[in-house]
């Protein structure tokens, strides 16, 4: 069934109030889709839980008194048991969910200044972090709450905004204030990560800060978004990498422009192939490939745009991993987290 032919709307399900400063990031628990984490300029992380009876969301826990500055991003481990938090205080916290409470079980130190993003690889054996100090760090998860720095990757010439592991392979992606996206990969099993590709303006890349990276479920496409007001879609022949034929380079597939008139801070690809974008124009955009069956190749079109989704800039949009209903969470400078549902108009 073609989504473009249906009459869809993005309906606000609930507004989650609690943070006392801008909310930078939201993250759905990958195992329990009734748990959501958000982090803020108020130096805290909030864990929100959906009641199985009333279906309404409430704050289950506030993770505070560990980070002394803004918590810029948060990321659940694939098991859903651990939450990693990246802070402007220069540290990355690892929190364990003990059921009734969350406890900070480890603090990763090493970056010279603000840590901006943290990402777990698909198996949960590695973490990556990035910072204004221009470096990307890979941490090995040793067990027993021990984390060991496995690599310090230098290559970006400016502040690194986000790191994101590939969904099926141990390939790491980073994007930066230097307008590029870098791909890091270890050809051998010795874990010697190298920059294997840089997507810049001459490879049809972005012309200003790249803020976010997200992959589709199979991992053969990624979407990036930027201060240049565009979203870009990239593709690679990952079957080549899976069969051990070496690195498969990423190439530009298309550019979505003209949909936002302020910086696009976030983009996220859902498991059923809907791309969401959140921007400084307070709007959320949804995009789909309406030509995916055609011989002409993909053509991404605007499915809908929700103007004034928040009262201020939107910093993060994330689709729920649950396949039952299309839920989207958003976080904003207005201090709110919102839960949205994509519904067919009655």
């Amino acid at each position: 069934m073609d989504l473009m032919e249906k009459n869809l709307e993005l309906v606000e399900v609930q507004k989650l109030e609690g943070h006392t400063d801008r909310v930078w990031n939201v993250a759905w628990n990958p195992v329990s889709s009734s748990l959501l984490a958000s982090c803020s300029g108020d130096n805290t992380v909030r864990i929100w839980q959906q009641s199985p009876l009333s279906r309404s969301w409430s704050c289950k826990a506030v993770l505070e008194e560990t980070h002394t500055r803004t918590v810029r991003s948060c990321s659940w481990s694939p098991s859903g048991k651990l939450l990693a938090t990246a802070s402007f205080d220069g540290t990355t916290g690892i929190w364990e969910d003990f059921g009734d409470e969350f406890e900070c079980i480890s603090t990763l130190e090493g970056h010279e200044n603000e840590v901006k993003s943290v990402s777990w690889n698909a198996s949960g054996s590695y973490l990556a972090t990035c910072s204004r100090d221009k470096s990307v760090w890979i941490w090995e998860v040793l067990g027993g709450n021990e984390y060991d720095c496995a690599a310090v990757l230098n290559g970006h010439t400016q502040d690194v905004k986000m790191v994101q592991w590939h969904p099926t392979m141990d390939v790491l992606f980073s994007c930066s204030y230097d307008n590029t996206i870098k791909v890091w990969w270890a050809e051998d099993d010795d874990g010697d990560y190298q920059c294997v590709q840089t997507l810049n303006e001459s490879s049809n890349g972005h012309s200003s800060t790249v803020w976010a990276i997200s992959f589709n479920a199979t991992g053969d496409k990624m979407v990036t978004c930027s201060d240049d007001l565009t979203l870009k879609i990239w593709t690679a022949d990952i079957s080549m990498m899976h069969s051990g034929e070496g690195y498969a380079p990423w190439t530009h597939l298309c550019t979505l422009s003209g949909y936002h008139d302020r910086t696009i801070f976030s983009s996220h690809w859902s498991s059923d192939d809907i791309i969401a974008s959140g921007a400084g124009d307070d709007a959320i955009g949804l995009f789909v490939d309406s030509e995916h069956d055609s011989v002409n190749g993909p053509s991404y079109n605007l499915l809908l745009k929700k103007e004034k989704a928040h009262e201020m800039d939107i910093n993060s949009v994330q689709w729920s991993p649950s396949k039952e209903n299309r839920l989207l969470a958003s976080a904003s400078d207005d201090g709110m987290v919102k839960i949205w549902q994509l519904e067919t108009k009655p």
Binding site: R22, R69, R72, R132, K161, Y177, T209, T263, D313
Partner: peptide, 15 residues
Amino acid sequence: NKQLNDKERVAAALE
């Protein structure tokens, strides 16, 4: 101009 309009850099500076 880029630095003055990067809200993340501004937020960090103001901490």
